[in-house]
Structures are given as C-alpha cells and as structure tokens.
Simulated scan of single mutants.
Amino acid sequence: MTPSSVELALIDRWQHDFPLVAKPFAIVGRSAALDEQATIGVFRRMRACDLISRVGAVVRPNTVGASTLAALQVPPDRLDQVAEVVSREPLVTHNYEREHDLNLWFVIAGGDAGAIAETIDRIEAQTGLPVVDLPMVQAYHLGLGFSLREPRAQKRQPPAAGDYRPDPRDQRILAAIENGLPLVEHPYLAVADQLALGQEEVIARLEHLVAAGVVTRFGCVVRHDKLGFRSNAMAVWNIPGEIIDDVAAIFARHASVTLCYQRPSRPLVWPYNLFCMVHARFREEAYAVIDELNLLADTGLMQQAVLFSKRCFKQRGAVFSRHKETN
C-alpha cells in the first residue's frame, strides 16, 4: 500500500505530542482538515495496513520495568527455527536477523529484571545457544519520531529523566496501552473503564510520565520499512571510555541518528560499546551518514561495524503486563 498524502502528514505530525485530552482525534484531525470520525478511520486503516504499529507511549528503558538488547550466533540452517523460539517469548518486542556472526538480535522488555533473566534462561535452554546480553549503560539520544521528509534541522529532545516516583497505576496504564490506544472517540475513557480508574486520572498519569521523561514520546509508532526506509543500520564502535561521552554527544546531534546509546562490550564475542541507529532508503544513504559521523567525531580509525537488518521476525511495543500471552 502506498500511503496517501493525508496519511503521511498525520504520521509525520503525530509521532509525538499526541493529545492527552478526552477526544484527541478531534484535535488530530484538524491538522489534516478531517473531522473526528474520518480521522479515526484513517488511523484504523494505517494500523490495518501496518503503516503504524500503534499509537501510544515509547518508554525510556529501565524506568518503568526493565529491558535489554541481546544477540545469538545461530547456525544459518537453524536460523528460522531459533528465531521462532525467540519470537514466541512474550517479552521479546523486536527480533531481527542482522548481517554479522551474531546474526539474531532481539529486545526483551518487561516488568522487572527477574522477568528479563527468566526469558534469557528459557531461550538458552530451548536453543542450546548462549545469549549475549547487552543491557543499557547510558542513553544519549532516544528518537522522538522519524521524519518522513528531510531530516529535521533541529532535533527534538525528550525531557531528562527527572524525579519520578513510581506509582502502581503507571504500570497498569502502560500495560493497558502496550498494543496501542483504542482507536475510538474516547480512547482514554476506554482505558480507564478497563482499569476501573477515572478518565482524568489516566490522562494525568500519562501527562506526568511524559513530563518526567519516563515516556520519551507519545504518538504514532511507524513501520519504517512500509514507508520506504528499508536500510535499517545498527552502527557500532569500540570507543575508549574516557572519550565515549564526547563522541556520543557528536553522534546524537546528527539529524539522521534516531538512537544513540552505550552498552557493555563482551570480550571475544562483541568488542563494541557505542551504538547508533540509522534508517535510510538505501544502503548508500546509511553509509554516507556513518561516514559523516566518523568525520565529525574523528572515529574513522576506531574499530567499528555496520549491521544491516535482513529480516524482521517480530516488532511490537514493550510489555508491561504480567503473564501476557504471546501474540
């Protein structure tokens, strides 16, 4: 499906700052000269056609719940079978084949560190392969949307993670919308009724999570490949610890870098500690961005690699509910 100009405009505008009001689609529609019901219809169609995966919260790692990035080195003749095992795990949110000896990469995100560890243990037991666990050390840039036109000259920055005091309602609310807001006239009321809370209570908690930097953006989560951005590059470097913050600051400012973060290296199997995500229409575009990063940060001679994704086996939002059945 080729997205219409209206769909592209709605996606581009509402990847962030989706209205936290009783009737958000009435406001959203005004930006495209649509009435409320027509707007809801467009969003339902975009979700059905996989242009967007959901409208909802993108949560800063390890604030509410826990998460990690992990990888496996899978013999090529076992890749489909092992990928199926990994994707069946309820807490696995993303599962990709990438071009590297470590060829299966997945994100595990759930309620707490114990649930993450249990997931890793099950995967190792079922596959007979050791999981390379790479938890977040430092997040330098968490993407606040994905421009469908030229990269924005001024990147949006989320609020720093502030003085957030966990509230038991927050995890329940995030669990209720982990697959996205209901695409109805009163979505927050639908969530509130499900949780036996008040609508204003749900909206107020989401506003607090956004203000505290726990939710880094609230809006459309796009399917990049469905919109023509098929060269998904995970660029990684081995950066000395004494300069990693300075290098990361340079990388994070680049308009084409959607994520930048530090993870631990693992001797013998994974020497890299700084990660950047670059989404491009073609490989040449991705390589051009990485070349520019190396020039800006003087990292061209440092050990590095680019892992392009080959296949997506699973992609969904973080899981905050407990005992969630696999989709």
Results as ranks from 00 to 15, higher is better:
Phe218His: 10
Val257Leu: 12
Ile244Phe: 03
Pro264His: 13
Ser256Asp: 13
Val236Ile: 08
Val221Leu: 13
Leu227Glu: 04
Asp246Leu: 07
Val221Asn: 11
Leu209Gln: 15
Pro267Glu: 03
Val236Glu: 08
Ile243Asp: 00
Ala211His: 05
Pro240Arg: 06
Asn232Arg: 09
Leu274Asn: 02
Ser231Glu: 02
Ala212Lys: 13
Phe275Gln: 10
Ala233Gln: 10
Val222Gly: 11
Val214Asp: 03
Arg205Tyr: 07
Ile203Asn: 07
Thr258Met: 10
Ala248Gly: 01
Arg217Asp: 12
Gln199Ala: 13
Gly241Pro: 12
Leu197Glu: 00
Asn232Gly: 03
Gly198Pro: 05
Ala204Glu: 15
Arg230Thr: 15
Ala212Ile: 11
Val269Thr: 08
Ile243Gln: 05
Leu274Tyr: 00
Pro240Ser: 05
Asp245Cys: 02
Phe229Ser: 01
Ala196Lys: 01
Val269Cys: 09
Leu195Thr: 01
Ala212Ser: 15
Ser256Asn: 14
Arg205Ala: 13
Gly219Pro: 03
Phe229Arg: 07
Leu268Gln: 14
Ser256Gln: 15
His224Ile: 09
Ala255Pro: 13
Ile203Ser: 06
Pro271Trp: 06
Gln262Arg: 11
Ile250Pro: 01
His254Ser: 07
Ala204Thr: 10
Trp270Gln: 04
Val247Pro: 04
Trp237Asp: 00
Tyr261Ala: 09
Gln262Gly: 05
Ile203Asp: 08
Cys260His: 12
Ile239Glu: 04
Ala196Leu: 09
Glu201Pro: 01
Arg266Lys: 14
Leu227His: 02
Phe229Val: 07
His208Asn: 13
Val214Ser: 08
Ala255Trp: 03
Leu227Trp: 00
Phe251Ile: 01
Ser256Glu: 14
Leu197Ala: 00
Trp237Gln: 01
Gly198Asn: 12
Arg223Gln: 14
Glu242Val: 10
Trp237Tyr: 09
Leu259Phe: 15
Gly213Ser: 06
Arg205Cys: 11
Ile250Leu: 09
Cys220Leu: 13
Ile243Leu: 04
Cys220His: 06
Gln262Ala: 13
Val247Tyr: 01
Ala252His: 00
Tyr261Asp: 04
Val247His: 04
Asp245Thr: 14
Asn232Val: 07
Met234Ala: 10
Pro240His: 00
Gly213Trp: 02
Ile243Val: 08
Ala252Leu: 02
Asp225Glu: 15
Thr258Ile: 13
Ile243Trp: 01
Phe275His: 13
Lys226Ala: 14
Leu195Phe: 01
Val210Trp: 02
Phe251His: 00
Tyr272Ala: 06
Leu274Met: 02
Ile239Thr: 06
Ser231Ala: 15
Arg230Met: 09
Thr216Glu: 03
Ala196Ile: 03
Lys226Tyr: 09
Asp225Leu: 11
Ala235Cys: 08
Gly213Ile: 03
Leu209Asp: 15
Tyr261Phe: 14
Phe218Thr: 05
Val214Phe: 04
Leu206Thr: 07
Gly213His: 02
Thr216Ser: 11
Asp225Gly: 11
Gly228Leu: 13
Pro271Ser: 05
Pro264Val: 07
Ala255Thr: 07
